[in-house]
Amino acid sequence: MEEKPRERVTQPDVRKAAMRLIGRVKPVHLTIVLILVVGTFMSVGNKEFLSLYNIDTILSFGAILLIAALGQMFAILIGGIDLSVGGTISLISVMFVFLVHSVGYWAYPICLATGLVLGYINGVILTRVKIPSFIATLGTGGIITSLAYVVSPRPISAASDDYGYFAVVNGSVWGVSNVFIIGLVTFVCILAFLRFSRAGRNIYFVGSNIKMAWMSGTDIAETRNVAFMLCGLCAAMVGIIISGVRYGGDPVVGTSYVLNSVAAVVVGGTALTGGTGGVVSVLFGTLFLSLLDNGMNVVGIDQYFQQALLGVMIILGVAVTFDRTKTPVIK
């Protein structure tokens, strides 16, 4: 009788102390550890992995995935998901080539605006028609992909006279490729948006506790629309960059970005339930995937085996970084 209560009291104390220690480690720290482990492994495997040339490669290709993942992050932050990014990327990539030919630099704003509109449509289907974003974007994704085929059923190449317009994407400044710079600028802008603007904060609050946000007078529909519009905007940027890099568009090019972008966000430690995580997590998640992708080639892992290894690493990554304390029921 005397001892029992004491046992009950002390045990949680030890656990609590341990939990507190663990509590200080944020998911993003674990992602960084993962990156260091993978990076070390790769650079031991082949020292060329850390050559300037290869680092530039990783960064400039990582930047494209980063932008796609940052867009996806908005959809996930508010507790949804956007499966239509693939369609948007494809559509913009073909549209952009046509537009550059006919309206020159105006193609950039037009394409970005298209991305915003497509995102807005997704948002409206979620907020007004009230269809879960998974279904809504699965549906609109199919529709947008069809639109891409309407614009051009086959990959198109830009006329060489138009190459000048692509320099925005393809050039480099002091040896740093523009794609990387664009990625960095996007990253900083989104960081700033979430950090310094009211609308950015609303996204977190809606994702974290939508009921509370609503009761505090937040315009829920507007916030969610903004999140999806930004997702569409990022997808449009990816579409433009891909067109720029390839000097041509392709109506299927976006497909691989749908699940890859989700994977990059989740590996960074962001839960699909929304409200947690942020640009830094996504940055490291993307870096992790890009390092793996590139490193497996540089180290020379059998091509036949790379896909399987990537799957294992994603599960491992999420197993390590996923913050289970915040989601009691894992679906």
């Binding site: 603007s197 506790n209 009921k211």
Partner: peptide
């Protein structure tokens, strides 16, 4: 817990939520 707070966000975030517009400097929070 269900209606009053964004539990995974910080104390400062929750306190400041309604007045963010007033905590701006040069248009930025």
């Amino acid at each position: 817990r269900e209606e009053g707070l964004a539990l995974n966000l910080s104390v400062a975030d929750n306190i400041n939520y309604l007045v963010l517009d007033k905590l701006k400097w040069a248009g930025l929070i």
